[in-house]
Design a protein around this nucleic acid. Structure first.
Lengths: 251, 251
DNA sequence: CGAGTAATTGAAGTTTATCAACACACGTGG
DNA sequence: CCACGTGTGTTGATAAACTTCAATTACTCG
């Protein structure tokens, strides 16, 4: 398999009457603990939406009448300061939840990086279900607690890691969540430009690019074209990320 | 009122038979939405604990058989990298929740900065209550979502703000959560050393100290002794923090 | 009041940002 | 299918911010 053959999954074809049972995020999303009858309640208010790559779904401060689960594709959550400085505060990968019950306004900009498929719920209706469906509430709490942990982990990266470690940390996250294994190597497509990477990493795009070059020069990664990445040795990459603790939780 | 007279509240005297109704965090903590009969369930498994300043309650990786609410005092949540770099990922102020239902191990170091009073619950018992008491589950979800937002906001500070802006941001948070108003000024005690501030801010203690001096020189703050701080103009401080958006949500 | 810790300040060094030029990929149209 | 143009990525030189190492001063507590 050559690097250029790695593409994002776009296999899920939805439409009226598509069953949740066929949904690729059925086992990880906010609905994953639901019994069949609970799923019916969600099914009644759900609708799929396709968002083209590059489109902004919400801007910080805007009203937000829906919540949603990412089904396919990659999005970002970010904040822009008045002088233009931008910081991404979260990646939105399949099964991630967008929006917040109980809040009518977006706190962050939400953007589609690749074409995005989301499973959308009208917010008020979702809040009602949340109150009457413990398995949804429980799962949302679990997911939020997990998100909180990753946000805190990311604060460690932003607060204490060098540019090289930050870039390695980012590649490691993507390799774990998007990578395909192929003969001991991990292969994946970067869903982001250098600029977006820089926004996530709290660096400039030039520094980001330099560190990518350095990691390539040192054999930690190989690249092909703009976005295909090969990681020959995930443990080596984890060491570069400073995550160490002898290679915790690889895979 | 002189700065040195500002002290932390230590007015809550607990002991066997103390009613939740007298609890200073009754209206904000995880129990705040509870009906009287729900409170009884929590009351049955709660116990107050005093932790002296400086003590570590948990270390990352350790088993954690309890969860708790901070009642009085200030604590920290932090992670230490193998080479000694440390990043604080959260401040624990009164009403904040410690621990996570469903996880048996601490992810971060938890330390008492000042003497700390916590209202503690055995984790398994708390998880049972969570399942049977929607008002606890709802409130915990609210609080976790809020925490997630602050963690993300902090990522913006760490990723994009200058040393001066970071120090100002930190002072602003403390002024809002710990400050007492006195004739248009805000007065509070720093519950942390410069080193702990630096750990929170992703800076060195020297840089932190220099920026404190600079803010003092520029009249943004006044200090007395090591930890008393006076903020003559909260809006000015918010501007220095780069938080701007014309002084959002002061108070 | 004195000892010891915490905080401040200075000088030099390192990392990252900024400004600027150039190269490469990828889609478009010839 | 190749040439071309535009946006994206790379690299270099310089400047700025922050860190590091070191010395001094100021609190606080016994």
């Amino acid at each position: 398999m050559t690097l250029s053959q790695i593409k994002f999954d776009r296999t899920f074809r939805h439409g009226p009457g598509v069953e949740c049972g066929e949904c690729p995020i059925r086992t990880r999303a906010v609905c994953s603990l639901c019994e069949p009858h609970e799923l019916n309640a969600l099914d009644g208010i759900k609708s799929y939406r396709e968002i083209p790559a590059g489109k902004r779904l919400y801007e910080a401060g805007e009203p937000m009448e829906h919540v949603a689960s990412v089904v396919l594709g990659v999005g970002t959550l970010s904040r822009t300061l008045e002088d233009g400085r931008r910081q991404m505060v979260g990646l939105l990968l399949p099964s991630d939840f967008i929006g917040r019950p109980g809040r009518a306004e977006a706190l962050y900009d939400v953007e589609a990086l690749t074409d995005l498929t989301v499973c959308r719920f009208e917010r008020k209706g979702f809040e009602r279900i949340l109150g009457s469906t413990p398995n949804v509430a429980t799962r949302l709490l679990q997911m939020t607690l997990d998100e909180l942990d990753s946000a805190r982990d990311w604060a460690v990266v932003l607060g204490r890691k060098s540019a090289r470690e930050r870039v390695a940390s980012f590649l490691l996250i993507l390799a774990r969540r998007l990578g395909r294994q192929s003969g001991g190597e991990m292969l994946f497509q970067l869903p982001v430009t250098r600029e977006a990477m820089a926004d996530y990493l709290g660096l400039t795009l030039e520094t980001t690019s330099r560190q990518m070059s350095a990691l390539r020069r040192d054999g930690v990664i190989a690249t092909e074209g703009r976005s295909a990445v090969r990681v020959p040795d995930l443990i080596r990459l984890a060491e570069e990320a400073g995550d160490d603790s002898d290679g915790v939780a690889l895979v």
